[in-house]
Design a protein around this nucleic acid. Structure first.
Lengths: 137, 137
DNA sequence: CTAATTGCAAAAGCTTTGCAGCGCA
DNA sequence: TGCGCTGCAAAGCTTTTGCAATTAG
């Protein structure tokens, strides 16, 4: 019995075929950040007949359950990634679309300080650096 | 002749009524961050008959011209703010919806370092802290 | 006068929802 | 068996676009 099923049960979700398949795709994809459409296409490619609406529903449920994280990089559609419980931020290459993850303790703590200075506690944050390959010229 | 007109001309945009009105609304609003819909309603309230499509077009042109900045706070619609050429990031209160602007030199330079470490130059960045009032309890 | 701009309505994307039928526990 | 889940199609939202009429310079 695959380990993903445990997480589903723990989240109070029935272990159904669509949910298991979607979890598998998120786990096995070599691209870590996938849109609902990406997942949907991957399902079709794998010969699994799951509706796009279900993909959205399942991803949203996964998000509520803390299994995945949803990001809204610049405007367009949302992307989802498996939540490995290790917080990180993102760098998006504006030329290739590549997504690089990074974590910086200094920035993290500084954020807390800034919020605190204004009388707030941080509930969450979103930091995305839009970058381009360094010009060696 | 209002000063905003200069900026329009400088941007190569004809000084039309919709554009002037929209600029005025952005300048005079006590809420600094407005959605297209907000601007549209403000126009109607002011008795100006401008189409929503025009609001979007104008705001997009303003963005291209560097007159305004567009932000995509959590999911929903985009919000626009006048570009005062002083970069800052945002804190959004999850309870009141308040938007607080802040700037932190250390975070800024640290971002550059992180990008550089990965072989990139920063083109832009988006940092939003989602916060809630500090519990004094 | 001429090209830019606007308004309206329609279209486009992404995402959500209603509902009848299907499937897990 | 029963309630949750799924698929399909339709609806919802924000934003964009086509086009004829209007307007700034």
């Amino acid at each position: 019995m695959p380990n993903g099923n445990l997480e589903l049960k723990k989240a109070g979700l029935k272990v159904t075929l669509p949910r298991v398949k979607i979890l598998e795709i998120l786990e096995s994809s070599d691209t870590r950040h996938l849109s609902a459409e990406d997942v949907y296409k991957a399902l079709l490619d794998a010969g699994d007949d799951v509706g796009l609406a279900t993909v959205y529903r399942v991803l949203t449920q996964f998000e509520s359950a803390g299994l995945v994280l949803r990001h809204n990089f610049e405007g367009a559609h949302a992307v989802f990634e498996l939540n490995d419980d290790e917080h990180h931020d993102h760098m998006v290459c504006t030329e290739t679309g590549d997504v690089i993850e990074f974590f910086d303790d200094f920035i993290e703590s500084r954020q807390k300080e800034v919020a605190s200075k204004h009388g707030y506690d941080i509930v969450g944050h979103s930091l995305v650096l839009y970058v381009k390959p360094k010009q060696s010229s």
